[in-house]
Amino acid sequence: MKSFFRMTYPYILWIAVFIVAPMVMIALYALTRSGNSMLTFQFTLENFAKFLSDPTFMRVLWTSLRIALLTTVFCILIGYPAALFISNMSERKQTMMVLLLTLPMWINMLLKTYAWRGILLNFDLESETKVFIGMVYDFLPYMIIQIHTSISKMDRNLLIASYDLGANKWKTFLKVTLPLSVPGIISGITLVFLPAVSSFVIPKLLGGGDYVLIGNLIEIYFLQAGDWNFGSAISLIMALIIIASMYLTRRMDRNGQEA
């Protein structure tokens, strides 16, 4: 299968230029002192120290992680049954449903969030509830589509075999469908959790201004404060924490699959 392996070369080259190189520059900013020009680097860890030593920043990061985590959990809980039901439809209907789920994503997010603000004005809800409605709304289609993709066109023979062996519906779901859908859930988590950590527009608009989140903080440092060094450092710390938590999730996935 060597020839297939070669298919990755163009993209490896591409990510070197378009993902790795910009990230190296961001990392350089994070590791240098603000105010000096690109020519006279002065390496320092003080940006990281500043973040880690101020409980305010840690609190903001924690709130962001908590909101992202809960959003992801809600998306799985609401999205999984939907994905399952869709995968039981006829093939044409499945395509139709996937398209129906994507269409609203083409309407500007800010516009939809303003709409939610207007709709939710009529309901007396906690601001946190409003934030989660907005967040789950924004990310749910990704989760449904990812899970659906992994269980659609699943080998029907597996299900029939399971029924033939006397397993009931629940058992079949737990032993056959669920394990098969784990990779889909994992990529759903990736597509929901990762962007959710740094998103802040929805919580800000729906939460009555009660939310300062990490994405907000990074933007404040890059734009309002004009301190790219610290902004870069925050984004690196955030990335490291997320990578570590994703690594743990993946290990759990591997263990789950082996079991």
Binding site: I15, I19, V20, M23, I26, T190, L191, L194, P195, V197, S198, I214, G215, I218, E219, F222, L223, G231, S232, S235, M238, A239, I242, I243, M246
Partner: peptide, 12 residues
Amino acid sequence: INNLPVMNPDIV
């Protein structure tokens, strides 16, 4: 590495 653009805030 592929995950980086998904994870990084847009501004970064």
